[in-house]
Amino acid sequence: MFGALLFIIATSVLPCQGVSDGSYMLTMSRYMEVGKPQKICMTLYNQTLVDVYYTMQSGNKRYFFQIQKYRKGKGGCIDVTVPAYAAGTRNRLSISIVEPTGKFIDRSHDFVPSSPLRVTYIHSDKPIYKPGQLVRFRIMTVDSDLMPDLGKISLVRVITPTDVIMKQWRDIDNDKGIVTLEFQLAAEPLLGDWVILWRRAVIREEPRLK
């Protein structure tokens, strides 16, 4: 007679032996992202009534504790937000499952949460430009759910092949999720790769134009 607690993290399955009849399955994302609500779900098998104690901590600092009472064998999910200071450090999720008989299962899982995931696309209207042409480009940032990031862009610079700042914009509103900018090339511009530098807070990217 035994139960089992399964941790499923993306495609990984970690079985653990329990202490009584029935079993449990815990699912969570392999890539926990700080500052973003994420779900941890418990599924019950051959169990009708259990209390589950969830604890999450970074080092010795506990930042999450919740007691969930599951009835009628349905299980359920909780929402967890990992704080920003926990990014890049080893965190621990601890689970205590208490059954009606008083027997319990204690299990834990270590993980390293990531900083907010953002991908920025800078797209120009042409791959190569000739002297005197107007250069148009767009900047769009999406998060891990492919939703646009509406945060203000603090700096955009156009830099020549000799590292001279040719054009600059500051504190650009991005309430629509996409920013369109343009600048005019001179009749005799410097030839080579030009750089569009984009910055939001400490995030920075440098796509190149020719």
Rank of each mutant, 00 (worst) to 15 (best):
I78C: 13
I78T: 13
D79Y: 11
V80G: 07
V80H: 13
V80S: 06
T81P: 06
T81Y: 09
A84L: 11
Y85R: 03
Y85H: 08
G88K: 04
R92V: 15
L93A: 10
S94I: 02
S94R: 13
V98N: 11
P100I: 03
G102R: 03
G102Y: 04
F104Q: 12
D106Y: 06
R107F: 00
R107W: 01
R107L: 01
H109S: 07
D110C: 04
P113Q: 00
P113L: 04
S114F: 01
S114C: 01
S115V: 01
P116E: 01
R118K: 06
V119F: 07
V119H: 01
Y121H: 05
I122N: 06
S124V: 03
D125G: 05
P127W: 12
I128L: 09
I128M: 08
I128A: 02
K130M: 10
G132A: 13
L134Y: 02
V135R: 11
R136L: 05
I139W: 06
V142Y: 06
D143I: 04
L146S: 12
M147A: 15
D149P: 00
D149M: 12
L150E: 10
L150W: 09
G151W: 11
I153S: 01
I153Y: 03
S154M: 12
S154Q: 11
L155E: 15
V156N: 10
P161N: 07
T162L: 14
T162M: 05
K167F: 05
